[in-house]
Design a protein around this nucleic acid. Structure first.
Lengths: 224, 224
DNA sequence: ACTCCTAAGATTGGATCCAGTATCGATTAT
DNA sequence: ATAATCGATACTGGATCCAATCTTAGGAGT
């Protein structure tokens, strides 16, 4: 019934704008601290301010933007402490998700994961940072979803979203990209052996590397 | 203009409506599964549909309502599995929050907590279920906020919100109310002794009682 | 009786317009 | 010159109106 266009477009303007806003924030076009000029953005996306504001309310709930009555929305600016806190929470939630995921792991699932990892490596070889971030995200979310706890996965996804703008810095470094690939390979191997605690520990270290790298980049800036 | 019934009204209509909607859902006036008729509700709250819809977007992010494009919003209906999952996540987050809270505990903080507990007992004595739920919430949130992790507290608060409609069933039972008071007293005592693990364990059991009670009530209904 | 189709009504989605608030510059008094 | 006040302007908040979509009732055809 629906016309099949080359690019899948959401059925409502607010969902379309939501996606565009996410991209604008995570790619750094809208930078942390920037005010959101509703009229200008609405015109750019060729919609009115109503769906734009609804999309912003969603982003507020996800922590990507903040809201002040009668002053408007601003791109969330995370302090070093905020970032550390996000990673503390991620440690808790992802640890549990991984633990449960290993219990319910199937061979078919491992194939899907291996494919995601192949995509990560291909993107890295092509130096396509954006594609690598996408494939990397898919790699981890695939594991989390095996947990069978959809709300938990949703929370984790939201936490990832809220730090996307910062994590992209991590992938811009060649050495970090190599380390990601390496750790993913080991993860796959440990998953095949169903070595739960080893996987949990490795992925915790995986996160630790990311947060350490982000901290070292952010510290001089955030010292103000 | 309209009847404010002594309640201080927020600076924007959307925030006002947000509070009213929360009350309507948590008190059971809007029941799980009910569709949200925007026009009727907007008229009832004497606002237009615009701020109502923005409030609904916020509630969607919190999981109190669900949204389907072109079909509208519905009060979230939690299955038994959903409820269990929320409590699994709460165990993780609240456990960490309490652990950190005990480390940073002050005597002044304990006084605030004792006051909250006094309010809980007063409300219980007056058989005011609503006031008791409020004071109980304040009791626990006070502890969580000592953790010094505001985002973690925010997540926990959201999880509480999403199950308010179900937890209110818990307080309608006299025995449960007594048990809550009792466990709170012990919690206070253990906190004064800075016995971290005992507090963590007790509050975990505290949650376990609630989820068990809710399950027993919900099971015959949810068996469909 | 059953199914499919059509059309009317109900409901949501979005655009435009107006009102309220915050921001910032100019003016005036000290 | 400086500080305070007032007013102009930009932006957000909200109401109303119109368009798009879903739902439902009714009727024609099999």
């Amino acid at each position: 019934m629906t016309s099949v266009e080359g690019r899948r477009r959401p059925p409502t303007a607010q969902q379309f704008v939501l996606g565009e806003l996410r991209r604008a924030i995570t790619t750094g076009r809208l930078r942390p601290g920037d005010p959101i000029r509703q009229e200008a953005l609405a015109e750019e996306f060729a919609v009115s301010r109503v769906p734009l504001r609804e999309a912003l309310k969603t982003l507020e709930g996800e922590g990507l933007v903040t809201y002040q009555a009668h002053r408007g929305y601003f791109v969330e600016q995370l302090s070093l402490d905020d970032l550390r806190e996000v990673y503390v929470i991620r440690d808790l939630l992802e640890g549990e998700a991984v633990r449960r995921a290993v219990q319910r792991l199937t061979d078919a699932g491992l194939d899907v994961l291996a494919q995601a990892q192949a995509d990560v490596e291909a993107a890295a070889a092509a130096a396509d940072v954006l594609a690598m971030a996408e494939a990397n995200r898919r790699f981890h979310m695939t594991i989390f979803e095996w947990s069978g706890l959809p709300r938990l996965v949703r929370l984790i996804r939201t936490l990832w979203d809220s730090t996307d703008a910062y994590r992209s810095m991590y992938y811009s470094d060649e050495l970090n990209r190599e380390r990601v690939i390496d750790e993913h390979r080991v993860t796959l191997d440990l998953l095949r052996r169903r070595d739960t605690e080893a996987v949990v520990a490795l992925l915790a270290a995986h996160r630790g590397h990311a947060v350490a790298a982000i901290e070292s980049v952010l510290r001089p800036v955030a010292g103000a």
